[in-house]
Amino acid sequence: MTALPRYEDVQPGDTLPPLTTKPISRTTLALFAGASGDQNPIHIDIDFAKQAGMPDVFAHGMLGMAYLGRLLTGWVPQTAIREFSTRFVAITQIHAVITCSGKVVEKLPDNQIKLKIQAADQHGDVKLTGQAIITLS
């Protein structure tokens, strides 16, 4: 279980402990397709992906968002998260190693803070950007 930081101890510019995943394999995508229910063949069927004009299958956007969710719940208990949003800015290629990072950008009223978060691959290419609103104690 994650302890909740105190509002007065948190300042804009503070960073979250980053999270780096294992390389995303075809098995990762198959397991995530089953567990998440997102069975779009473009993520698991190379024939379908090629027909759609892609060189290969690629990761589900929601897999990257789930990693960002782990970044958040690694820093605060999930019940502290009020809002969580992402833009899927680029396709996450197979074999990518994703690093999730985040920082506090604003202190809001009522013990709330705003975070900017992102997921990037091993080349530093940003795949997801987003933000979260967290209620601290």
Binding site: M1, T21, K22, L31, F32, G34, A35, A66, Y67, R70
Partner: peptide, 11 residues
């Protein structure tokens, strides 16, 4: 549990 495993959850 399957979702946690598929997303590499350690918590």
């Amino acid at each position: 549990r399957a979702f946690a495993k598929a997303t590499g959850a350690t918590d």
